[in-house]
Computed example of a mutant assay.
Amino acid sequence: MTTTTKKGYFGEFGGSLVPAELQNVLDILEENFNKFKDDEDFNRELNYYFEEYVGRKSPLYFAENLTKQCGGAKIYLKREDLNHTGSHKINNVLGQILLAKRMGAKRVIAETGAGQHGVATATVCAMFGMDCTIYMGAEDTKRQALNVFRMELLGAKVVAVEKGQARLKDAVDEAFADLVENYENTFYLLGSAVGPHPFPTMVKHFQSVISKESKEQHLAKEGKLPTAVLACVGGGSNAIGAFAEYIDDEDVRLIGIEPDKAATMALGTPGDLHGFRCLVLQDEEGNPLPTYSIAAGLDYPGVGPEHSHLKTIGRAEYVTISNEEVLEGFQTLSKVEGIIPALESSHAVAHALKLAPTLSPEDSIIINISGRGDKDVEQVFEMLNK
């Protein structure tokens, strides 16, 4: 029932493990992506929207107060939270919607966990006049009720998925089921660097704008490359975007931070999930294990295939952070720098609070602030007042 292609592998991870009819759809998607990703007109339009609609370039901000408080390395923040819609998700969404437009799509579907990808997808669908359906775990619709309203305000239909744990994995399940049933007229705008080929490669391509900018900005400010780049990891889209341009720079440490109760990198083993091979939190029968994170966007039992590969070959480091440390990072950045980060991004902030003091003042680290914390304020208020 499945076909396996060797395209889209990162070492042993990746591939396309899907039913034959869906493979045909993915082949067409790959063909169009390869056709347009280096096309001059396509990139001119994409860059126009990056600058005029998203507000790129996002700043690389020297967090002077946080640096003084921590001691040690200089701390820089890549401000993806300042993008239109409030996160890095808009980068990939714009690239894919322009691709969908060129492919003649009229209907777009997407999955979302914390709601930021859903909001970004609903935003561009509104702008380009496309029908939009967003799948979201029922538990996440409660945690992120504000983002559900934003999606609906933008004209999207939000489907609350009650199956399984009613979280991100289950939303992805339903989105792929929709695609299998409606592939003839539907474009699946996948939000993370996961799924069957070409999705991980495509998402990395559009998110790599983060590290292209940060590398140029850091060289201008410091005259050298950073000591380390930090980013939270769930499926891994913001992290692979933040790492992309530094992968070949072996002196730059790449550090992904994940929740301790969804520690795919620490505890996962090779397995198949959502049509690709990656490190998975799974039982002896290969079934995905339940996960939990206070950050809905990181609540996923797998991880992107390139992250799985980077961990396996030792090019990137992956560490875990507790919920208590995340809340500390959330509050610290808010109080010290006047920047309220998303709970997802707070994982990276929390690790930076521990890492920076161990380095010298000659060192510098970049934290990818993947999203702003407006969506999480009510949730954090409730947690801190319990």
Results as ranks from 00 to 15, higher is better:
residue 1 M to G: 12
residue 1 M to S: 09
residue 2 T to H: 03
residue 5 T to S: 14
residue 9 Y to E: 11
residue 16 S to R: 06
residue 16 S to D: 01
residue 25 V to M: 14
residue 25 V to N: 15
residue 25 V to A: 15
residue 28 I to L: 14
residue 29 L to G: 05
residue 31 E to D: 15
residue 36 F to G: 00
residue 38 D to W: 08
residue 52 E to T: 12
residue 58 S to P: 11
residue 71 G to R: 01
residue 79 R to V: 06
residue 83 N to R: 02
residue 83 N to V: 00
residue 88 H to D: 01
residue 93 V to C: 05
residue 95 G to Y: 03
residue 96 Q to Y: 00
residue 96 Q to V: 01
residue 103 M to V: 04
residue 107 R to L: 14
residue 111 E to R: 06
residue 112 T to R: 13
residue 113 G to E: 05
residue 113 G to N: 05
residue 117 H to M: 15
residue 122 A to H: 09
residue 129 G to H: 05
residue 131 D to F: 00
residue 132 C to E: 12
residue 136 M to L: 06
residue 138 A to P: 13
residue 139 E to W: 02
residue 140 D to G: 09
residue 142 K to L: 04
residue 149 F to I: 04
residue 156 A to K: 02
residue 156 A to P: 08
residue 162 E to V: 07
residue 173 D to W: 08
residue 177 A to F: 06
residue 180 V to C: 11
residue 183 Y to S: 14
residue 183 Y to M: 14
residue 184 E to C: 11
residue 190 L to M: 15
residue 192 S to V: 12
residue 197 H to K: 01
residue 198 P to C: 06
residue 199 F to W: 08
residue 202 M to E: 04
residue 209 V to H: 15
residue 211 S to C: 06
residue 211 S to T: 02
residue 220 A to P: 08
residue 223 G to E: 03
residue 230 L to H: 06
residue 232 C to Y: 00
residue 234 G to V: 06
residue 235 G to P: 05
residue 238 N to D: 13
residue 242 A to H: 12
residue 245 E to F: 00
residue 263 A to T: 08
residue 273 L to K: 00
residue 276 F to C: 04
residue 280 V to W: 05
residue 288 P to N: 10
residue 292 Y to K: 11
residue 297 G to K: 02
residue 298 L to A: 07
residue 301 P to Q: 00
residue 304 G to S: 10
residue 312 T to E: 15
residue 315 R to V: 00
residue 317 E to V: 01
residue 319 V to R: 15
residue 321 I to P: 01
residue 321 I to Q: 11
residue 322 S to F: 11
residue 326 V to H: 10
residue 327 L to S: 02
residue 330 F to W: 07
residue 330 F to T: 08
residue 332 T to K: 00
residue 333 L to S: 00
residue 341 P to K: 03
residue 344 E to G: 14
residue 346 S to G: 02
residue 351 H to T: 01
residue 354 K to W: 05
residue 356 A to D: 09
residue 358 T to R: 15
residue 359 L to H: 04
residue 361 P to C: 09
residue 374 D to R: 15
residue 377 V to I: 15
residue 377 V to M: 14
